[in-house]
């Protein structure tokens, strides 16, 4: 195996780790907003998938990756809006609605994909996002190549994680958002409009999940496949627990998962003597494993998942 442990191998591995972690990182960052405001957005998976498809469709039609990504964000937000209407306004069960909308997203994207592109042997493609070199910093050995010679989305994602930290813990909006997730009635007596805060948080979440989805198609593959999200939404949900609802911890957690995923791809390529299906399981097994270890200790927002009803005393 020694021939693989060259610097090129390590650098390409680290790059793959970062790229793989981006969609999960964006979705998990979004989920923090939603859960901190008291809403478990189980629909995350569907929002990523919708984002992935519509971003690709948008980019394919307009030829602009930027417009594609915007489409992806909007698609994610649209699902979030539907979820919010059912769960915040109509107070339906977040679990039931979330699962239903996930299935809906899978159906819609698969259907539209076949309807628009037909069933072809060669995948319709767009060019993936180009490298953007960060001046000066990209000259640093190894780090420069790994972190500062990536595409725009990588920078945006890392920045999002840091920005989320500031928003959640340092702003009045963040305080209101957290109060809505802890004790909405108390928040309301202090003049916080809980419904409004929850909608805003959920839409932010949908937008970020949609953006994460668009990276799957526009940043990594350059095309769309049915169910391309492949459970990343659920991994992101687990990451939020693992990262204790804290954006920076979740950034590290996402890297860990990205690393596991990238590793199994490499191991497959090397041709290790294990059936590839087992390799594919790695990130999911890691999720289960980590949840078993950390899930019990995690203290979630006190009112998480409980629909808030203003009228009911």
């Amino acid at each position: 195996m020694n021939k693989y442990l060259t610097s090129t191998f390590i650098i390409t591995y680290l790059i793959a780790m970062i790229k793989t972690s981006i969609p999960i990182l964006l979705a998990a960052s979004g989920e923090i907003y939603s859960e901190r405001s008291g809403v478990v957005n189980i629909n995350l998976e569907g929002q990523i998938l919708a984002g992935a498809f519509f971003a690709f469709l948008g980019a394919y039609i307009t030829g602009s990756l930027f417009l594609g990504a915007i489409m992806g964000i909007l698609a994610g937000m649209l699902f979030a809006l539907a979820f919010g209407f059912a769960c915040i306004t109509k107070k339906a069960s977040q679990i039931v609605v979330g699962i239903t909308l996930n299935i809906t997203a899978l159906g819609i994207t698969s259907y539209l994909n076949r309807a628009y592109f037909g069933i072809t042997t060669s995948l319709p493609r767009v060019k993936v996002m180009p490298q953007v070199l960060v001046p000066v910093l990209n000259k640093i050995p190894i780090l420069g190549e790994v972190f500062f010679s990536r595409d725009l989305m990588v920078y945006i994602s890392l920045f999002t994680a840091i920005l989320s930290y500031v928003i959640i813990f340092k702003t009045t909006f963040g305080l209101k958002m957290r109060s809505a997730g802890e004790y909405p009635r108390a928040a309301e007596t202090m003049g916080v409009n809980v419904y409004r805060i929850q909608y805003i948080s959920l839409l932010l979440c949908g937008g970020l999940a949609g953006l994460g989805g668009s990276y799957l198609t526009l940043g990594m593959l350059g095309g769309f496949m049915e169910n391309i999200s492949g459970g990343r939404g659920f991994i992101a949900l687990a990451l939020v627990i693992f990262g204790k609802w804290h954006p920076l911890k979740i950034l590290l957690a996402a890297m860990l998962f990205g690393g596991a995923d990238a590793l199994q791809v490499r191991l497959q390529a090397i041709g290790a003597d294990i059936p590839y299906q087992f390799m594919l399981m790695t990130p999911y097994l890691l999720t289960i494993f980590i949840l078993i270890i950390t899930g019990k200790r995690a203290t979630q927002p006190a009112a998480l998942g409980v629909p808030y009803d203003r009228e009911k005393l």
Binding site: R178, S179, E182, Y183, A186, A187
Partner: peptide, 10 residues
Amino acid sequence: HQHFMLIKAF
């Protein structure tokens, strides 16, 4: 209020 309107985690 009789039941305090305080957020315990804050």
